[in-house]
């Protein structure tokens, strides 16, 4: 290699000076969950309000939406459980997170230096995950009843209205969370979208947004 310093070579692993944040399995897991969620959310909105019924037309027509929505919904819940399996250790909320949440106004107003340093995920990301997780449980419990209402005996028809209402409320909560999540990934935190597409972040990104995580994973690095 040293004989031909001008030759290009194929890079494996993150670029120089960048660090791995998500493995390819984690990235597939995220985008699988995102894709199933987006279909389920948009098709659900089509059935939620007449002003958005046109979404059903875009997504293949009303009967197709009725057919696929529950299947994609189950797919989304599987993704959420997969994340639970993979990320639980990094998603536990501790006292540090509670302190961060008490001062969340500084996060919203871009005064991050006034916040306690965070580990791999900050408290906002953890709250987002647990919110999606809780809503996924509600959606999973209520969805199958709405999927097969014909199996409900007459005396339990009142349950249909209750589960439909709860399903809508849980779905609206996830939509609010997802809107913030998407905004933060594509605009508010530059570099975080690349973390989830190509898997790596800059050192500056890690130092600023996940200092404890950065310190942890770079602890073994040789200092000059």
């Amino acid at each position: 290699m040293s004989d031909t310093p001008s030759h290009a070579f194929l890079r494996h692993g993150p670029p120089v000076d960048r660090i791995q944040r998500f493995t390819w399995v984690e990235r597939i897991m995220h985008w699988y969950t995102a894709a199933t969620y987006i279909y389920a959310a948009l098709s659900g909105l089509a059935l939620f309000t007449p002003y958005l019924f046109w979404l059903a037309v875009v997504l293949g027509g009303g009967p197709a939406v009725r057919f696929w929505h529950p299947i994609f919904g189950i797919g989304f819940v599987i993704g959420i459980f997969w994340m639970y399996h993979s990320w639980l250790q990094d998603l536990k909320i501790d006292a540090n997170d509670r302190k961060w949440l008490d001062n969340v106004k500084y996060y919203i107003t871009n005064q991050d230096e006034r916040l306690p340093p965070q580990d791999k995920y900050d408290a906002g990301q953890k709250i987002y995950y647990w919110g999606m997780f809780g809503c996924a449980i509600v959606l999973l419990l209520t969805g199958p009843v709405m999927w097969f209402p014909e199996l409900m005996p007459r005396s339990l028809h009142w349950v249909l209205a209750v589960v439909t209402f709860l399903h809508s409320v849980a779905a609206l909560v996830t939509i609010g969370g997802a809107m913030i999540h998407i905004y933060m990934s594509i605009s508010n935190i530059p570099g975080s979208l690349k973390a989830m597409t190509e898997g790596h972040v800059s050192r500056g990104w890690a130092m600023l947004h996940a200092p404890k995580w950065y310190a942890r994973i770079t602890a073994g690095e040789k200092r000059p």
Binding site: D17, I108, T109, N110, D112, S187, N188, I189, P190, G191, S202, R203, G204, W205, M207, L208, H209, E221, R223, P224
Partner: peptide, 17 residues
């Protein structure tokens, strides 16, 4: 408020890399 851009203090970065 806009994006949270990460700027590295020159000294720190230099020291590390």
């Amino acid at each position: 408020y806009g994006p949270k851009e990460a700027e590295i203090h020159g000294g720190d970065d230099h020291e590390r890399h």
